[in-house]
Design a binder for these strands. Structure first.
Lengths: 342, 342
DNA sequence: ACCTGCAACGAAAACGTTTTCGTGTTGAAA
DNA sequence: TTTCAACACGAAAACGTTTTCGTTGCAGGT
């Protein structure tokens, strides 16, 4: 095990000064051709690579961006990471992935770890607990310290930073309108509690479509789920004896639980009831019947987030502040859990 | 936007020396109580946090471990990351996640980026392309430079490092034996090509069970898939007209494709054919029929890997070298794609 | 012979820490 | 009064870079 090669060691070995070595390797015209070649040959031969940490300290930037997500065992988030990784690598950046486990404390801790020099900026989707508490002091603090921040998916209005979101309302409307177009008139909504912004927004879209089509909103047709753990049981109970011909669920798990419950009641999907989910994962594709869903394009979201962040990182500080919100449009992937249009 | 607080600034503000500030904050007895309290109060009030990069440079360790995986959009790997994150955080480490996208070049690049000071050690699962090429110079180089390395899942024998694997042979045997116990006598195998070690080992387990039970190995009952892209078509073609009563597939995708093909042939799962997969993902759980699978305990694998690595990082350099291989045992999760035992 | 100017290189500061080794000031023992 | 710890603190080196600003040596012009 040989210790790492440094400029100092090269300098000593070749009997020149450290500065000469550094300049030679960076092709400075200050250094004579002969010495330069000698040094470069030596460095190449012994495979010299500059120490990133020293560079970071010197340049006051790490060429690293941190991404903090609530949970990784979730197809949507992994596609986002993929997208971030992709453009980050293209631009010469590294990616630090941290998990908040949907816990406020872990989110704060993670930010503190990364904020102390490890990272040039953040990409973040808020933990559920954070949204519930409504405590965003850690975000504001980071921004105050000059750390660029990009929020995605689970964002919150009153933070001054770039954001990348999908148009939840429009996505939901697309789905519900599609159900309506299929002839469904008794459409149920299975959503999450309102403090999760997506739950709220998708509910809004649902309501709007009803209204636009002259249907009246009926509270009995709406289920809001708080505890993911027994969502399956809640959905089964909710659907039991409920007269519906369409279901819009805000994620794939809820959609699948709904299908199961409906089938257990002896009804058929999609003949008797059409079901649409949100988020396009492996599960949706392979389930039988395969799921019609609103697709979120996580990859695009990740790419856009990374681009936004890096743009902020590399602009000259003189430029004035401005914040963008990018809306990645959703798609509707029609499969076999909805009747086919005639 | 106020710039970060440093020791130097505190020192100037309080009119003491940098060393005094540093010592005071670290509770050195060298500093008088009065000054110490004054400094600590100031630091607390202005929320001083030491700069990680400077610490890393000084201590020559980053308290960061890197994990490089072939693909993140894969449930197994995300559970591994979860496990790594968990114990890493407990031990005060950060986690750097990099994706090789199953490409040799990207794997090498990633390692080089992380090896230059960004990371104290690696946790790695080899890219498919790397195993195919059989080129491991980058691993050996890292080890040579004194970077501890832990290989998991897709490992290779002749690298001197810690490893965490599952007993693929035993896992496969468990599955095939289970099929045999159910009365299956014509058991098909759907596997990957042999240069992916898991494909090879699981095939081995399959063969052993046949042998142990006096069945003869039949090449017609084995499919080896190279291209994931059209695996579904290949499986359908393979199964067409094939007389089987059991299928063992080396991952959940193959298993599900098999079930679909079988059903399309008018046969029933599990009544006519029992199917077992490998790796326990969301898909296995929610598919109908839900899948009987060999579960890999990715979380455990991640935890063990992290523990192994950190152990190496924190031991005193005097201790002599030794390498462990931890085998995480597999479980058999029985669900509805296999007949129930009477 | 003297200055000028350029080419080629080195010294040193800086980034933010920690730590070793002084150094000056006390108080008490001799 | 002298001497010597003990105490409280500061200077400086070190980690590995980059960069600014010297400092040489030497050729060319007068």
């Amino acid at each position: 095990m040989k210790p790492k090669l440094t400029l100092k060691k090269i300098a000593k070995e070749l009997d020149v000064s450290i500065s000469t070595v550094s300049k030679a390797l960076r092709d400075s015209p200050e250094i004579g051709e002969e010495t330069r070649e000698k040094i470069k040959a030596f460095a190449r031969h012994y495979n010299y690579k500059p120490n990133n940490i020293a560079l970071s300290l010197k340049n006051r930037k790490t060429k690293t961006i941190g991404i903090i997500i609530p949970e990784i065992v979730h197809h949507f988030f992994t596609t986002v990471i993929s997208g971030v990784e992709k453009v980050a690598n293209e631009m010469g950046y590294n990616v630090f992935v941290c998990l908040s486990d949907n816990s406020f404390d872990k989110e704060v801790l993670n930010m503190e770890m990364l904020a102390n020099g490890s990272t040039d900026g953040f990409i973040l989707s808020l933990a559920k607990e954070t949204m519930q508490k409504g405590d965003y002091h850690h975000l504001k603090e980071a921004i105050n310290q000059g750390m660029p921040l990009v929020l995605f998916d689970r964002v919150v209005e009153d933070i001054a930073c770039d954001k990348v979101i999908i148009d939840d309302v429009a996505g939901a409307k697309k789905a519900v309108q599609y159900l309506h177009d299929l002839g469904c008139r008794k459409i149920a909504l299975i959503s999450t509690v309102d403090y999760v912004s997506v739950g709220k927004l998708r509910t809004k879209g649902y309501k709007e479509v009803l209204e636009e089509n002259g249907l009246t909103f009926n509270d009995d047709l709406v289920l809001k789920i708080e505890e993911m753990d027994d969502s399956e049981a809640q959905i089964e109970k909710f659907l039991e004896g409920l007269d519906v011909d369409g279901v819009f669920a805000v994620n794939e798990h809820f959609a699948i639980s709904a299908i199961k419950s409906i089938q257990e009641q002896g009804k058929k999907v999609p003949e008797d009831v059409s079901v649409i989910g949100f988020t396009d994962g492996e599960l949706s594709k392979r389930f039988i019947p395969s799921l019609t869903t609103v697709s979120q394009h996580g990859m695009r979201i990740g790419e856009e987030s990374a681009r936004l962040l890096i743009e902020k990182l590399e602009r000259t500080p003189s430029e004035e502040e401005y914040y963008k919100t990018i809306i990645v449009e959703t798609g509707l992937v029609t499969r076999n859990s909805t009747k086919s249009k005639k």
